[in-house]
């Protein structure tokens, strides 16, 4: 239904950096000090990663992040409770009773994690949002401007908006940033979530966002980086309006208790798990 080809293909490897770093550290420690130390280093790295996972889980309340953090935590503990049998007979990895206990949880969390991955419950929906916003927008040259665009005015209660923000972050549709008079919803693209989650000085108002003022005004802003991520230069005014209207549509569906329709609409955009 939607033209996902409107976005450039995702070739970023930023999302793989943590995995690459942990493997490099594991390889270096294993090569220099032996496999036993390598496993301990990998375990320590996973425990550190799990801390970030718990921070992400706290910030988003997303089930995927919770399970991911628990998986890394148990795996990290597991690697620190097993022994490497370099010269002796039998298995190379010697499991203690604690390790056997943890192993059960590792498998449980892994299966759960794969399920959440396949069902896109642990996927940031930034690319889907940008693809949906660009639906039926005509190409046009030299129309970009860095200004936010007022979309329209709505009537809603502050509490409704806060519940909506909780929903969007839980399902990774957007990360809300709370200001005194408004909430900004930032669509985050998969692989680019780290500065949003862990950055202390993120200039979030320079990113792409849709802001809902408590007085009802809705405003949209698209960053130049996101604009250039489209294959073609699109007519900017209708694109900004479309992005704002998309969030308004989500908000109206949320108010009617049709949250599942929001997720359905996201899933109608055919984008891979890791993009």
């Amino acid at each position: 239904m939607y033209y996902t080809q409107i976005l450039k293909s995702d070739k970023s490897i930023i999302g793989l950096v943590p995995a690459i770093v942990s493997l490099v550290l594991f390889g270096c420690a294993g090569a220099l000090f032996g496999m036993g130390i390598g496993l301990k280093v990998l375990g320590a790295v996973l425990l550190i990663y799990s801390v970030f996972g718990f921070i992400a889980a706290y910030r988003t309340n997303n089930l995927g992040y919770k399970i991911s953090a628990l998986y890394m935590f148990t795996f990290g503990l597991y690697l620190n409770t097993v022994y490497w049998n370099e010269f002796g007979p039998g298995d190379k990895i010697v499991k203690t009773p604690e390790a056997r206990f943890l192993f059960v949880f590792i498998i449980l969390f892994l299966v759960w994690l794969v399920y959440l991955l396949v069902t896109k419950r642990i996927k940031w929906r930034g690319r889907e949002i940008m693809a949906l916003a660009a639906n039926e927008i005509e190409p046009a040259e030299n129309t970009y401007t860095d200004r936010p665009r007022p979309v329209r005015k709505l009537e809603f209660g502050k509490e409704h908006l806060q519940n909506f923000a909780d929903f969007l972050k839980k399902y990774l549709v957007a990360l809300p940033f709370y200001e005194r008079d408004r909430i900004l919803f930032l669509p985050v693209k998969m692989g680019f979530e780290y500065p949003y989650l862990f950055g202390s000085n993120l200039n979030y108002w320079e990113k792409t966002w849709v802001a809902f003022d408590y007085d009802g005004t809705v405003t949209a802003h698209i960053s130049q980086q996101d604009y250039l991520d489209y294959k073609e230069n699109l007519s900017f005014d209708p694109l900004c309006a479309s992005l704002g209207e998309l969030y308004i549509e989500f908000f109206e569906k949320f108010q009617k208790g049709e949250e599942v329709r929001i997720i359905d609409k996201m899933n109608s955009v055919k984008i891979g798990f890791f993009s």
């Binding site: 046009a140 030299n142 129309t143 970009y144 401007t145 200004r147 936010p148 665009r149 007022p150 007519s235 900017f236 005014d237 209708p238 900004c240």
Partner: peptide, 21 residues
């Protein structure tokens, strides 16, 4: 006023209309 100024590809508007908006 400038916040509500029409974008480069948007429809032109009078000063009056922008002020009202």
């Amino acid at each position: 006023f400038l916040f509500n100024l029409p974008f480069p590809d948007a429809k032109f508007a009078t000063i009056e209309e922008i002020m009202q908006k």
